[in-house]
Amino acid sequence: MTLIEKYPQEVKQILARYPQDQKRSAVMPLLYLAQRENGFVHRRDMKDIGAMLDITETDVASLVGFYSLYHDEPAGRLRIQVCTDLSCALRGADDFLAALCESLGVEPGGTTPDGLVTVEPVMCLAACDKAPLFQVQTGAGLEYHERMTIEKTLEWIESRKEAAS
């Protein structure tokens, strides 16, 4: 199914935000829409978006490549992104990431064998006063988890596991 068949309402709303002769502006919101289902942008959706906006598939792909919140490959269903940037690192974020990876048995950037969780470091998330923190990116959106501990994090992952099963 094409994007517009799947989300006719959303596509219409997105296109309505930009001048009619500047459809291309809609490419980023449409990419989020395409990413919703699987947490990454599929090639056929890139083609689809290109056709919708009158730009080439290569143009669309080059945006997926540029922006770090778009992914061109699948990862765990929960993409846990720990901020290890300067301010957070000054408050123990590097240790937090290392400990979390150890408890989950993955390397930074890796995914748990059950395919549920991917853990990766990211750049500053504009919540530097609330370290350690991470954001979780799922297809459906983003949420922040601030002032975290390993225990709290593992508990939360457990709860999501239950929810999933």
């Binding site: 090639r43 080439t56 598939e57 290569t58 143009d59 669309v60 490549g65 540029f66």
Partner: peptide, 20 residues
């Protein structure tokens, strides 16, 4: 007028690709 090649990634990882 045929933008069928483009840059992928950014910074030093920037790379020419074609998806056509």
């Amino acid at each position: 007028g045929e933008p069928v090649i483009g840059f992928y990634q950014r910074g030093r990882s920037m790379d020419i690709v074609s998806f056509s």
